[in-house]
């Protein structure tokens, strides 16, 4: 089934009215992922944007058509591991799924996620990485790109400041746990995302981890209608490459042989607006470094398949 057929025909598992910002590509990602996973799923939404906008529900009503709950910020993976154990004990099966922001994944939730990865608990973990704590007004996270303005890495009138450190290469860190499936994805490449969720569903032992890069309109300063196009530029400039890894076998799924200049991407984003050419070059150097590394470890010396 093509991604379009699937998305046109499947039921939306999320409440039709959730209070995500106008144009939010995380809302798109969540609806897409859950259509692919279908009704036989148990969904964890830790504190973060998607919890805040009502996916877990409001008062005595739900925000989803599947069982959904709030884990704590830092225990999403372990709560899901517990659900899996309970299902196993009762001889039942369901997709046990996390949809968690980068704060709940690369920062506070990392220990629990790393533990699950090492133990081989069978869960699907999807991280929507918008580079910071957006639900509380955009504080920096360890995923935030170097130079970014955030509310905790402010920028002076003279343009000095922003985050002082590079963000972690988190999907690579997860791949180094030797888990059955790790992928990166983008809301600008929906058919690619659909296929990767389907791959994750096929994993019968261990963790399937998908890291989705979601530019945040409100926090980063992006116009609503550019929600998808900016996300696409992150891929086309090699800033966020799309790949998958089965154990340590890597494959670039959207090769970028001729990248666009990084400025095409950063110039559309307000949080980078104070960065001069030198600081942009620094971001570009790291992106190129990471892409070369990925090519080197990918099948066929670059995965240009």
């Amino acid at each position: 089934m093509s991604a379009l057929d699937l998305l046109a025909e499947r039921e939306d598992m999320i409440s039709p009215g959730i209070s995500a910002c106008v144009g939010c590509n995380v809302e798109l990602t969540l609806r897409t992922v859950m259509k692919v996973l279908g009704p036989n799923s148990i969904l964890a939404i830790p504190p973060g944007c998607m919890g805040g906008v009502g996916v877990v529900g409001w008062n005595k009503q739900s925000g989803a058509k599947v069982p959904v709950f709030f884990p704590l910020l830092d225990n999403t993976a372990s709560m899901l591991a517990g659900i899996r154990l309970a299902l196993d004990a009762k001889g039942r099966d369901a997709h046990v799924v996390a949809f968690a922001g980068d704060g709940a994944t690369v920062d506070a939730g990392f220990q629990a996620l790393s533990g699950v990865a090492e133990r081989g608990d069978r869960i699907i973990y999807i991280c929507y990485d918008n580079e910071g704590y957006m639900n509380t007004g955009y504080q920096r996270s360890s995923s935030t790109s170097k130079g970014s303005w955030t509310s905790t890495t402010p920028v002076s009138k003279e343009g000095q400041g922003g985050k002082r450190q590079h963000g972690k290469d988190f999907p690579m860190i997860m791949a180094m746990h030797d888990v059955p499936y790790v992928a990166t994805a983008s809301p600008a490449y929906i058919p690619d995302l659909v296929r990767k969720v389907e791959e994750a569903m096929k994993v019968k032992e261990g963790l399937a981890y998908i890291h989705v890069y979601n530019p945040c309109l409100t926090g980063w300063g992006i116009r609503a209608e550019e929600s998808i196009s900016v996300a696409r530029l992150a891929v086309k400039t090699r800033f966020f490459p799309l790949y998958e890894a089965r154990n340590r076998k890597f494959k670039i799924t959207v090769p970028v042989p001729n990248p666009l200049p990084l400025e095409d991407y950063t110039s559309r984003i307000k949080k980078f607006s104070h960065l001069g050419p030198e600081r942009i070059a620094e971001l570009k150097d790291l992106a190129e470094e990471r892409y070369r590394f990925l090519e080197a470890v990918s099948a066929g010396g670059g995965g240009r398949a």
Binding site: I42, F69, P71, L72, D74, N75, S78, M79, L80, A81, G82, I83, L85, A86, L87, A89, K90, Q111, A112, S114, G115, E118, R119
Partner: peptide, 17 residues
Amino acid sequence: VESEHSAMSILSGASLA
């Protein structure tokens, strides 16, 4: 598990199920 925090978290998930 890798910590007590996860021990109680796993049981919370299992109990919810």
